[in-house]
Design a protein around this nucleic acid. Structure first.
Lengths: 188, 188
DNA sequence: ACCTGAACACCGTTCAAGT
DNA sequence: ACCTGAACACCGTTCAAGT
């Protein structure tokens, strides 16, 4: 990694940290510059304005998520696992409440940013489309219409991160309900 | 409404407008003061800081949502409607993509704020809990376990607002899937 | 109780000037 | 190509001073 790449990596790393721990409101060009130990005007040489810095940071964050997800997905010898176990494990990992989770905090910031920034909105859409494709592949050996299962579970998991704490069911009850639901829908 | 109440209403109204149309980043005490045609220091007399203004605005927004929802919910002579029609209508209204919808824009801002503000997080949780209760009541005449249906649909609708545009199904296909799923789960 | 302006440290952006 | 500091308009908060 050359000097230039190292510097950019450091900038984006500190921007991500600020976004996660302080939110968009706590992110300023000057704080990033201080953390990265460069001058404000030098930071602006690499990212011409706040928007450019945010866009690059979000893009990099989704890249990270992508490698994380692809690593954590069960490997291709999955067919030996029962569908029910696969669903249970995936939901156990995926159903997370946003109050305690750093990734949820980042996603909430990104969702808010995407409302007013078409570049970031495009990154969000692209990421979710890829995510759907990976899950469709994963489910393909269990049902002729894996898109149905994915279309059922993906929005649910995202919505759960935002309001799951207000549901009348515990997480375990939710998982039971979802697993049962998916199995029943597949059998139809 | 007395002078004081009118002033506060005007302040909160302009704050809400700024939040929806410009996001948290576009909201400043000075802009609100200008829009409400008062001095910055006068605004600070009514809301001691930005956080207090945000909290009051979010509380007021949820109150609005509450009355909107309670009005739009089918009235108590609902039992004459078929469950399938009720689900279809509710989902047709509820499944909205965040890119085009002002309410979704506001909720995204609120979700992000709630990560770092426990008062706002409490308002969010309280609102969703009420929402769940209204829906449970609505579903109670169709199934002995209305919480299951609500726990299935509520997170889904919220998640759909955030990533529905990346799903491999159209909105109509999603509604068909959900309606079918709910009916099947009820029959179990 | 209600309203004001000045002062402070902080912010993003622009720009002319350096190496 | 890379880096700098100064200047600008804007920001939230504090506070002493008014009615």
């Amino acid at each position: 990694m050359g000097k230039r790449e190292e510097k950019i990596a450091s900038i984006i790393q500190h921007t991500t940290r600020l976004l996660v721990h302080e939110g968009v409101g706590g992110l300023s060009m000057r704080r990033v510059a201080d953390l990265a130990e460069i001058r404000l005007s030098n930071l602006q040489y690499y990212f011409k304005d706040r928007e450019a810095l945010l866009k690059a940071t979000v893009a990099h964050y989704f890249e990270q998520c992508k490698t994380d997800v692809l690593q954590s997905l069960p490997s291709s010898d999955t067919k030996e696992i029962k569908l029910e176990s696969l669903l249970r494990e995936t939901l156990q990992k995926g159903l997370v409440l946003g109050d305690t989770n750093e990734q949820c905090a980042m996603f909430r910031e990104i969702w808010a940013l995407s409302t007013r920034n078409t570049s970031i909105a495009a990154l969000v859409k692209e990421y979710y489309q890829h995510y759907c494709q990976w899950l469709v592949q994963l489910m393909a050996s269990y049902t002729p219409q894996p898109q149905l299962i994915v279309s059922l579970l993906m929005p649910y998991v995202e919505g759960y991160s935002v309001m799951g704490q207000a549901l009348p069911l515990t997480k375990e009850e939710v998982i039971d309900l979802l697993v049962k639901t998916v199995l029943v829908v597949i059998d139809q």
